[in-house]
């Protein structure tokens, strides 16, 4: 845990959007910069950048030691923002995440001491190991971009992105995230083991100084906020909205639990962000398809009666079957 920023910026007025080319450039720089540290995960890096541009949060499903922390740190560094990290444990309290009021003997007043959630890039490590109450404290912050402690509400700094990881290895010691909470994560991603070549490259880079130490910021938090505004203004015409709806409907028809409307919204937002990556001011079906799996797969549950497929398989099937019009 590190210290947190105690002066959250207000973000009531919507910021000026960057021109789409500049926004694309910002995104590209972030991706390149992160790849200085994270080797061989170009697609995942892009997915993370579109999630950030879509004002989303990430769930990383992974074995330990594949570089999740490095990913989050390099991301924070690239955008010149605060990086915080919370290690979730069974005894972690909600206030350990949000912050706590401390009585100041001198001023004889309670003073709020912000928790790690007051960062720009928050890594919530092994979130499923904490009890649900603590999990929900983080989830409230994700949903509302604000934190309430002792009845007092504190606005969170922008940009604000939570990268949560789950430990699936020791499932018996975890509190599995409820479906409703998984749904709040825009995307679920997995880094996976690097290929042998990539791993060799990782080892080569690690031999000297850690590359994260040399990583320079390539943009600012403000620019990221403005690029987000650009993404929010990307045109998504009726055919695209209809296509997203059809995809969602397909999952509802072919699984026990289909994609929620929140999922459809997330898909449309990330598709807008994907269009920004291509410096395009409108969404094409390709954007939707590129984001569909990572945005939708973790939101569906398919039991034995509906084929028992994984979410990824179902989404792939939907992309094949649902006509692009």
């Amino acid at each position: 845990m590190t210290e947190a920023n105690s002066t959250p910026r207000r973000t009531d007025a919507s910021p000026d959007p960057l021109p789409v080319e500049e926004a694309a450039n910002v995104a590209e720089r972030i991706v390149e910069n992160v790849e200085e540290v994270i080797v061989g995960h170009h697609d995942v890096t892009e997915q993370i950048v579109t999630a950030i541009l879509a004002r989303g949060h990430l769930l990383l499903d992974d074995v330990p030691g594949v570089g999740k922390t490095m990913l989050a740190r390099s991301l924070a560094r690239s955008i010149d923002c605060e990086f915080t990290r919370v290690q979730f444990t069974p005894d972690l309290l909600p206030t350990d995440v949000t912050g706590v009021n401390v009585f100041d003997e001198k001023s004889r007043e309670f003073e709020f001491r912000p928790g790690p959630v007051f960062g720009n890039v928050v890594l919530a490590d092994e979130i499923n190991r904490a009890p649900p109450k603590t999990q929900s404290a983080l989830l409230e912050a994700m949903e509302e971009t604000q934190v309430t402690v002792d009845g007092e509400t504190y606005e969170l700094d922008q940009p604000f992105t939570v990268i949560a990881t789950q430990n699936d290895v020791e499932a018996d010691r975890t509190f599995e995230l409820p479906v409703a909470e998984v749904d709040r994560f825009t995307k679920r991603l997995a880094l996976g083991y690097p290929s042998p070549e990539d791993e060799a490259e990782v080892l080569r880079r690690m031999s000297g100084r850690h590359p994260i130490e040399e990583l320079e910021p390539v943009t600012t938090g403000d620019e990221v906020v403005r690029a987000r505004e650009t993404a929010a203004r990307v045109t998504a015409e009726e055919p695209i909205r209809a296509y997203v709806t059809r995809l969602a409907n397909y999952t509802r028809d072919h699984a026990d639990l289909g994609v929620s409307p929140r999922g459809s919204i997330a898909l449309l937002r990330t598709a807008q962000a994907r269009a920004v990556l291509d410096a395009r001011e409108y969404v094409v079906p390709d954007d939707v398809q590129a984001e569909a799996e990572s945005v939708l797969a973790h939101r569906v549950r398919s039991g034995t009666e509906t084929g028992g497929r994984s979410g990824e398989a179902l989404i792939a099937e939907a992309l094949d079957a649902v006509p692009v019009e």
């Binding site: 094409v284 079906p285 390709d286 398809q289 939907a318 992309l319 094949d320 079957a321 649902v322 006509p323 692009v324």
Partner: peptide, 10 residues
């Protein structure tokens, strides 16, 4: 023919 799930671009 174009497959149902194939985008024009693809």
């Amino acid at each position: 023919e174009r497959d149902p799930g194939e985008t024009p671009r693809q």
